[in-house]
Simulated scan of single mutants.
Amino acid sequence: MRMKNRLGVMFLCLTFRTSATQCGLVPQQRYHLLSEFNNLNMTNAQCISELKPRTLLTCARACLDTNNCTMFNINNNDGQCLLFSATFLSEINSSPLDGARMYGRVSDTCPLADGYVTFDNPTACYRLSLVRKTWMDAKADCEGDGGHLVVLEDVDKQQQVMEATAAIRDTEAVFVGLGDIDADGKYVWVDGRDLVNPFWDSGEPTLFGNKHCAVLYNHGLHASNCDIPSYYMCQIDTTMMVKWKPFLMMFSS
Score class of each variant (00 low, 15 high):
4 K>S: 14
5 N>D: 14
6 R>G: 10
6 R>E: 13
10 M>C: 09
11 F>N: 06
16 F>Q: 13
16 F>W: 15
18 T>Q: 14
18 T>G: 14
21 T>S: 11
26 V>E: 03
28 Q>L: 13
31 Y>I: 00
32 H>V: 15
34 L>W: 05
35 S>W: 13
37 F>E: 05
38 N>G: 06
41 N>C: 14
42 M>G: 06
46 Q>C: 06
46 Q>I: 06
46 Q>W: 05
49 S>N: 15
49 S>K: 14
50 E>Y: 09
53 P>R: 11
54 R>S: 09
60 A>P: 05
65 D>H: 03
67 N>E: 11
67 N>V: 09
69 C>P: 04
69 C>D: 02
70 T>A: 10
71 M>L: 12
78 D>V: 08
78 D>C: 10
79 G>Y: 02
81 C>F: 02
81 C>G: 01
83 L>V: 02
83 L>M: 06
83 L>Q: 00
83 L>Y: 03
87 T>E: 10
91 E>D: 08
91 E>P: 07
91 E>G: 12
92 I>L: 14
93 N>K: 09
97 L>Y: 09
105 R>C: 04
105 R>T: 06
106 V>E: 02
107 S>E: 07
108 D>W: 09
109 T>D: 15
110 C>H: 01
114 D>K: 11
115 G>L: 06
115 G>W: 04
116 Y>W: 14
117 V>L: 11
118 T>F: 08
123 T>G: 12
134 T>Q: 00
139 K>A: 04
142 C>R: 02
144 G>V: 06
148 H>V: 04
149 L>F: 05
152 L>R: 00
152 L>A: 00
153 E>C: 06
155 V>I: 14
157 K>P: 03
159 Q>Y: 10
161 V>Q: 00
162 M>C: 08
163 E>T: 12
164 A>F: 04
166 A>T: 13
169 R>A: 03
170 D>G: 12
171 T>L: 09
171 T>V: 10
172 E>L: 08
172 E>G: 01
175 F>S: 03
177 G>H: 02
179 G>T: 00
181 I>K: 04
181 I>R: 03
181 I>G: 02
182 D>Y: 03
185 G>T: 07
193 R>C: 00
194 D>S: 02
196 V>T: 11
196 V>P: 00
197 N>A: 11
199 F>I: 08
200 W>Y: 12
201 D>G: 15
202 S>R: 13
204 E>K: 10
206 T>S: 14
207 L>A: 15
212 H>T: 13
217 Y>A: 07
217 Y>L: 07
218 N>M: 12
219 H>M: 13
221 L>F: 08
221 L>T: 01
222 H>V: 05
223 A>T: 02
224 S>L: 04
226 C>Q: 03
227 D>V: 10
232 Y>D: 01
234 C>H: 03
236 I>R: 01
238 T>A: 07
239 T>D: 10
240 M>N: 07
241 M>Y: 12
246 P>T: 06
250 M>E: 11
